[in-house]
């Protein structure tokens, strides 16, 4: 199945922007960001091989002269459900490779797909990106209960980003956001084949000449369907019944075999 995605809306409506989308924005910028997707829920079947999700949006209250000089940059991220992640590193002890040191990062997205008007690193300075937490290199990775001197923080962060990127969970597409009219844009983010089940967040950021000025977020539920997901849900949500059923199935198989192949 193909993930249905499209969108709509947006421009011109004098709808007051929702408070939560802008509460941490300084008020002095007149620009506002609006985005929309056609659905807040995507159903994915077991033969899903990845798809693109298109998000439409518009900049409101923009300065036409700045727009003409391409001073506005948009970064759209699809963040997967968050979970604590532990990175471990193996060391050789008496010839055997053993997990030794580890670091747990607090609530990092399981997947992260980034789409931008150009390479994120060139849009704003690293401290700005770190502050917003946008970009694979700038996503917030704060260690849980970490008491070390911080010397190996970089090592574990780098390993985390590298593994997430090589596993296809973290992706980036510089050039994935395109203006289709003066202030209307279209962003394409990738849903990887192994997209995690759960509530994702589409988060759009507006930068003006390297300064972060507006943000807008929309939730997107990804629901896996099909028999595999049903079994997986049962294993987690009704684990006792699932375990008991596994045993019953084994008892039945063993008993049937002894009846079918009985010789005496």
């Amino acid at each position: 199945m193909r993930a249905v995605a499209a969108l709509c809306l947006v421009i011109g409506l004098a709808v007051p922007a929702l408070g939560w989308a802008q509460e941490d924005k300084p008020a002095e910028f007149p620009e506002k960001l609006e985005i929309g997707i056609s659905t807040d829920e995507i159903a994915i079947s077991s033969d899903f091989r990845g798809a693109d999700l298109t998000i439409f949006g518009a900049i409101e209250g923009y300065d036409p002269s700045l727009l003409a000089q391409s001073k506005y940059d948009i970064v759209v991220a699809l963040e997967g459900p968050k979970d604590n992640n532990t990175v471990r590193v193996k060391e050789r002890i008496f010839g055997i490779w053993v997990n030794r040191r580890s670091m747990t990062f607090e609530l990092v997205p399981e997947s992260y797909s980034l789409s931008s008007t150009r390479d994120v690193e060139t849009i704003a300075a690293p401290p700005v990106l770190n502050g917003v937490g946008v970009g694979i290199q700038h996503i917030r990775l704060s260690p849980v209960g970490y008491l070390g001197d911080g010397s190996n923080l970089t090592e574990f962060r780098d390993a985390f980003r590298r593994l997430k990127e090589s596993g296809g969970f973290y992706q980036r597409d510089p050039g994935g956001v395109q203006f289709i009219s003066a202030s209307l844009f279209k962003a394409t983010v990738k849903l990887p084949a192994n997209v995690p089940n759960g509530t994702h967040v589409v988060r759009a950021h507006l930068f003006r000449d390297g300064v972060f000025i507006a943000e807008k977020a929309l939730p997107l539920r990804v629901m896996k369907t099909g028999i595999e997901q049903m079994i997986s849900n049962a294993a987690y949500n009704q684990s006792f019944a699932y375990g008991a059923f596994s045993v019953m199935l084994a008892v039945l198989t063993g008993w049937l075999a002894s009846v079918v192949f009985r010789k005496d």
């Binding site: 979970d83 992640n85 532990t86 471990r88 193996k90 490779w97 399981e110 593994l163 997430k164």
Partner: peptide, 19 residues
């Protein structure tokens, strides 16, 4: 397998593993 140098000495585990 215990002795051979692994392809990657780093690994990630999330808390809700295999979900």
């Amino acid at each position: 397998d215990l002795v051979v140098t692994p392809e990657d000495i780093y690994s990630i585990v999330s808390e809700g593993v295999y979900r």
